[in-house]
Amino acid sequence: MDARPVGAFDSGVGGLAVVRAFRQLAPAERVIYFADSAWFPYGPRPPAEVRKRAFAITHRLLESDVKLIIVACNTASAAALRELREAFPGVPFVGMVPGVKPAALRSKSGHVAVLATAGTLDGELYDRVVEQFGRGTKVTAVAGTGLADMVERGDISGPAIAARLEQLLGPAVGRGADTVVLGCTHYAFLGEAITRLFPSVEVVDTSEAAARRAVDLLCDADALSPGPGGLDLIVSGDRQRLRATMAALGFTPAEQEANR
């Protein structure tokens, strides 16, 4: 047993998709979530800048004595996960990996589209995952420019988001892509919109897989908490705006429970 909290971070609300999945799997755990909204979005920033923020946030979370850190952001995982593990060898880190492997296994057409930020698509992690798990599958990279901004405003349905998704994903789907990988945690909130727009397309979201990995690591280390669970928010930007966006994304008052 280990009553210390679990840390998690992202540039805004996106990582809360992973936190929600984690809290459903391990409701007795207390999570400290750092929303780095003052530096949102990470996607177009240089990797060195994202890495610097990841290290700064990690230091802040470790000041709160967290027992595990979820890098709940694909861009930050691509830019900093390896370096974080090297710099903090005693801290378990769980990062986000584009779900190319499950997508390739599920695709009937052999054509997969990966919807992600430029920071993720240009990273070594993405190249390695495609090389390792995408062999024999056509993998089309689709830069989701502007989507994270829309999600950060709570805009996850309606004509504007449908038009943007059609513009971005329509060409790949038209060329035969039957599976879409959500390669940014913000995009986890767009799964329903994508399914409504492209009913024949399967959506792969790795939020639950990352959450389950975190739970498995805690189980292996006999470090599950006896409770009580909860959510603490640390926000580098506008806290009230973040809470308003959480409500727009469907987080209940209980899910928004926060002590900081």
Rank of each mutant, 00 (worst) to 15 (best):
4 R>E: 04
6 V>G: 06
8 A>E: 09
10 D>W: 05
11 S>D: 13
15 G>N: 06
16 L>I: 12
17 A>S: 15
17 A>V: 15
22 F>A: 09
23 R>T: 08
25 L>Q: 15
26 A>S: 13
28 A>T: 15
30 R>G: 01
37 S>T: 15
40 F>W: 04
44 P>I: 12
46 P>D: 10
47 P>H: 08
50 V>T: 08
50 V>S: 06
51 R>C: 07
53 R>L: 07
62 L>G: 06
62 L>Q: 12
64 S>D: 13
71 V>W: 06
71 V>F: 05
72 A>S: 13
72 A>L: 12
73 C>V: 14
76 A>K: 04
76 A>N: 07
76 A>T: 03
76 A>P: 00
77 S>T: 13
78 A>L: 07
81 L>K: 00
82 R>M: 04
83 E>P: 02
83 E>D: 10
89 P>D: 05
95 G>Q: 01
95 G>Y: 00
99 G>K: 02
106 R>N: 09
109 S>R: 10
113 A>P: 09
113 A>D: 04
117 T>A: 01
118 A>C: 03
120 T>R: 05
122 D>V: 04
124 E>F: 08
124 E>I: 03
127 D>S: 15
128 R>M: 09
130 V>H: 07
131 E>P: 02
132 Q>K: 13
134 G>H: 06
136 G>N: 08
138 K>Q: 06
143 A>W: 00
145 T>A: 11
148 A>W: 03
149 D>L: 10
153 R>V: 11
158 G>T: 15
165 L>V: 14
166 E>C: 10
167 Q>K: 11
167 Q>D: 15
168 L>E: 14
168 L>Y: 12
168 L>S: 10
170 G>F: 09
170 G>Q: 13
175 R>T: 07
183 G>K: 05
184 C>H: 10
185 T>W: 00
191 G>V: 04
192 E>K: 11
193 A>R: 00
195 T>I: 09
197 L>I: 10
204 V>P: 06
205 D>P: 14
208 E>N: 08
210 A>F: 01
213 R>Y: 07
213 R>F: 13
213 R>E: 14
214 A>Q: 02
214 A>V: 08
215 V>C: 05
215 V>W: 00
215 V>T: 06
216 D>Y: 11
216 D>N: 14
216 D>P: 01
218 L>E: 00
219 C>M: 12
219 C>D: 04
221 A>L: 12
223 A>H: 01
224 L>W: 00
224 L>V: 08
225 S>I: 07
225 S>G: 12
226 P>C: 11
229 G>D: 06
231 L>T: 10
234 I>R: 03
234 I>S: 01
236 S>H: 05
237 G>F: 03
237 G>R: 00
239 R>F: 09
239 R>Y: 03
240 Q>T: 04
241 R>Q: 13
242 L>G: 03
243 R>Y: 05
244 A>D: 09
244 A>I: 07
245 T>K: 12
245 T>D: 14
247 A>S: 14
247 A>G: 08
247 A>C: 08
